[in-house]
Simulated scan of single mutants.
Amino acid sequence: MLTNEPISNLRTHLGYWLRVVSNAISQNFARKVSAEGVTVAEWVFLRMLFDAESIAPSQLAENMGMTRGAISKLSDRLFEKSLIEREENPDDKRAHTLALTNAGRALVPRLARLADENDAEFFDKLPHEERLRLERILKSIVSQRDLKNIPIG
């Protein structure tokens, strides 16, 4: 059915502009962490584990808003890179927890600096008040929409 209603242009949508900025920020950061041998998803995993010290994969999956299968794949990759270790549960041989190795613990601060630098590249040109206002607006949308998943890519 044809209609005579005008069709909106891509650039009239705020979502379009959010994606333009988000994609640029994400792709730039992905290049930076790739040079350190990890993906953005692996960085998020390592950063979450850094705060937790040791955590069950199921709890990490819940905290990150990911499936257990996705956490399993990420943990396998990070285990192969010697960035995490698996610790058996002495009470239940089927259960284990995940923890950073010394190499993983040393990598997280370097990756965090890259995240800070990436943020600065995109947002330091904004006046401080505008940056705070943008942060408040985005956090308000997250809260209103009850968004919980951690962006990993």
Rank of each mutant, 00 (worst) to 15 (best):
T3K: 05
S140M: 05
D119V: 07
L10Q: 03
S58I: 12
A30H: 04
A30W: 03
K73E: 13
M48T: 06
P109I: 00
I7N: 02
L100C: 08
K93M: 07
A61D: 07
S82Q: 13
V33A: 06
M1H: 13
S26Y: 00
N102P: 00
H128T: 14
L134G: 01
T97R: 07
R113I: 12
R105W: 02
P90Q: 08
D119M: 12
L83K: 10
I84W: 11
F123Q: 06
L78N: 11
D116I: 14
I152L: 04
E121R: 10
M48V: 02
A41M: 04
S140P: 01
G69F: 04
F79I: 02
E129T: 12
N118M: 08
L138C: 06
G65R: 07
E36P: 02
E88T: 14
N23M: 02
Q59C: 02
M1Y: 05
S26M: 08
V108Q: 02
L60C: 09
G37N: 05
A115T: 08
N149F: 10
E5R: 11
R94A: 09
I141R: 06
R68F: 01
I150T: 13
D119L: 14
L107D: 10
K93A: 13
H13P: 01
T3S: 15
N149V: 12
M64K: 10
A120C: 08
S22F: 02
I71T: 15
H128E: 09
E85G: 13
F123T: 12
S140D: 07
A41L: 04
E129D: 14
E85S: 15
Y16T: 13
N9W: 03
R68E: 06
G65D: 07
D51N: 11
D91Q: 14
D51I: 00
I7H: 04
G37L: 08
A70Y: 07
S72M: 04
P109F: 03
I152C: 03
D124N: 14
S34V: 00
Q27D: 09
P57V: 05
N118H: 07
S72F: 06
S143Y: 01
M48R: 09
L114H: 10
K148R: 15
D146E: 14
A35C: 03
K139Q: 10
R110G: 04
S22A: 14
D92I: 00
L83V: 07
